[in-house]
Amino acid sequence: MSIKVKTIVRQGKSLQERLYLIEVFKGMAVTFRHFLRNFLDNSKLYVRHYPEVKPEITPRWRGRHRLTTHEDGSMKCVACFMCQTNCPAKCIQIEAGERTDGRTEKVPVKFDIDLLECIYCGYCVEACPKDAIRMDTGIFSVTGYKRESMLMTMDDLLATKGAFSEEEYKKGGA
């Protein structure tokens, strides 16, 4: 069996094309049409007027992380370190401790995500066996005045709520 070979037709060999000047004018005509259209009616620009008009965030968008909770408000995370193990940027720092609320035995006492190091790959979400970490906050613009403010602690991560309903999130492929 031979390899499938696709022959590409080489452009630019005809005299008209090799003169170049005619092609230049053709190209200029194309760009000028765009210019004229936009100049005469700038509502036709392919532009989103950010920040006044926000982009639509889908449930599959990997925004800033959050830690999820059970209905009673207790943390789902059991500090299994799966996210930290899988994180390719090594941006998650966990310290585990004894759990006292009777659910299981282990709970993180420290859960830091350094957003300056995070690459938003979503591996932590996929690795989590407890659905304890999600990236469904819909926060796409992460900014800060100091490096320290980019370090998300456990409290920050727990304080944020998801931007989508459970059905929407599940439908998004999670």
């Binding site: 059991v78 500090a79 299994c80 799966m82 299981t104 035995e105 282990k106 066996p129 407890k130």
Partner: peptide, 9 residues
């Protein structure tokens, strides 16, 4: 099967 919280995992 509580491997996430088990030290032996």
């Amino acid at each position: 099967t509580d491997c996430p919280i088990c030290d032996q995992a």
